[in-house]
Amino acid sequence: MHYQTTTGLDDESMIELVARIHQILTGRGIELTRHRLGLYRQVELVLILLRQDMVQMRAADLYRISQPSVSRIWRRILPLLDEVLIMTGISLQQAVAQGEPILIDGTFIPTGNRPASGQGAANYSGKHHVGCLSIQVAGTLAGDLIATSAPVAGSRHDSAAIRMCGWQDILEGSGATWIADTATTAITPIKKTPGRDRLEWEKQFNHDVSSLRAAIEHIIGGLKNWKILSKGYRGRLAELPQIIKIVTRLELYRIGW
């Protein structure tokens, strides 16, 4: 199996991740030797579910186990991934303290059409025409992921979302240099003034800002290669914030944090 394509991690990273989980389980006196799938294969299975957004019935056929077994493995391994990767990466506050310019952009996590009587209406995005949650993504000018924010309702505009998740206070309160889109008070492209064309220096400024912001688009693309965040999350919405956090840590782990 080509692990980097299928699970998102290369062989060395896979072995290290499984070793960390094994250490935790050993410390708690938990043995998995009686299970049909060993620990390595269980971790591999959960990563495939995250990376490929594979339905559990299909994963059950692939591993020749039952769908309830897949569900139990998912609920067993997922919190362990969160635990062993807790020291991966740095917070937005720590990144701001380093003094480097930070790129910020919002993206949406599709959640499918949910009943309007529940959270469906609040999460429906008129811009994207889909039920979703909205997160903010921070990265460096070099194109490295820093962090993702807590999700907010998909119906909220980016300018409201960045305030609701607490990032605007962090960025503005620290005096950090940050570059975002036109929905914020950061360094942004200059809007066109009605009745006149942009001046040459304004065009050049917008070109420079757009060139810098291209890196955050690549960062979001890398994050959404974990297809559970891009194809349409089907599980319980209450569990999605934890999954976003775990996938963020896995992506940071993958790129070498």
Score class of each variant (00 low, 15 high):
187 I>L: 11
151 P>G: 03
200 E>P: 13
188 T>C: 12
144 D>L: 13
146 I>Q: 07
136 Q>Y: 10
130 V>Q: 15
152 V>D: 05
201 W>E: 14
156 R>W: 08
158 D>R: 04
200 E>W: 10
109 I>C: 02
210 S>Q: 02
166 G>T: 12
104 I>H: 05
157 H>M: 07
208 D>C: 05
198 R>W: 05
177 T>E: 13
118 G>Q: 13
129 H>E: 13
133 L>A: 03
173 G>L: 14
203 K>L: 14
105 D>F: 08
189 P>Q: 15
120 G>S: 11
165 C>Y: 07
109 I>Q: 04
167 W>P: 10
165 C>D: 13
98 Q>G: 15
120 G>K: 06
121 A>P: 03
149 S>H: 06
203 K>I: 04
160 A>G: 01
110 P>C: 07
193 T>I: 07
149 S>Q: 01
135 I>Y: 01
155 S>W: 04
175 G>I: 01
200 E>S: 06
189 P>T: 06
213 R>I: 02
154 G>D: 05
122 A>E: 14
209 V>D: 01
100 E>T: 14
138 A>M: 09
169 D>A: 12
109 I>Y: 01
161 A>I: 04
186 A>K: 06
153 A>T: 09
169 D>L: 12
182 T>F: 04
165 C>L: 00
211 S>T: 14
114 R>D: 00
128 H>C: 02
126 G>W: 02
201 W>C: 14
203 K>S: 10
151 P>H: 03
100 E>I: 08
142 A>E: 09
188 T>M: 08
145 L>D: 11
154 G>A: 09
149 S>M: 10
102 I>G: 07
136 Q>V: 15
198 R>L: 15
206 N>Q: 00
198 R>G: 07
208 D>Q: 09
133 L>F: 01
116 A>Y: 11
118 G>C: 10
187 I>W: 14
203 K>E: 11
193 T>E: 15
117 S>T: 12
156 R>Y: 05
134 S>Y: 03
118 G>Y: 03
206 N>M: 00
165 C>F: 00
184 T>E: 02
146 I>C: 06
185 T>V: 08
183 A>T: 12
131 G>I: 06
149 S>V: 12
209 V>K: 00
138 A>S: 15
127 K>Y: 15
188 T>Y: 01
128 H>P: 00
124 Y>R: 11
117 S>Q: 15
138 A>E: 02
182 T>I: 07
120 G>I: 11
160 A>K: 08
189 P>D: 11
132 C>G: 09
153 A>N: 01
204 Q>F: 04
140 T>M: 11
199 L>S: 06
132 C>D: 04
178 W>V: 03
167 W>Y: 09
158 D>P: 11
149 S>K: 13
157 H>F: 09
108 F>R: 14
139 G>C: 06
143 G>E: 13
152 V>R: 06
194 P>F: 06
204 Q>T: 02
200 E>H: 04
113 N>Q: 08
189 P>R: 15
208 D>K: 03
177 T>C: 15
144 D>N: 12
146 I>M: 00
153 A>C: 06
205 F>L: 14
172 E>H: 13
113 N>V: 01
183 A>R: 04
144 D>E: 15
181 D>S: 08
172 E>N: 10
151 P>Y: 11
145 L>N: 14
135 I>N: 06
128 H>N: 04
157 H>R: 04
119 Q>F: 10
106 G>E: 00
161 A>C: 10
199 L>Q: 13
114 R>S: 02
164 M>I: 09
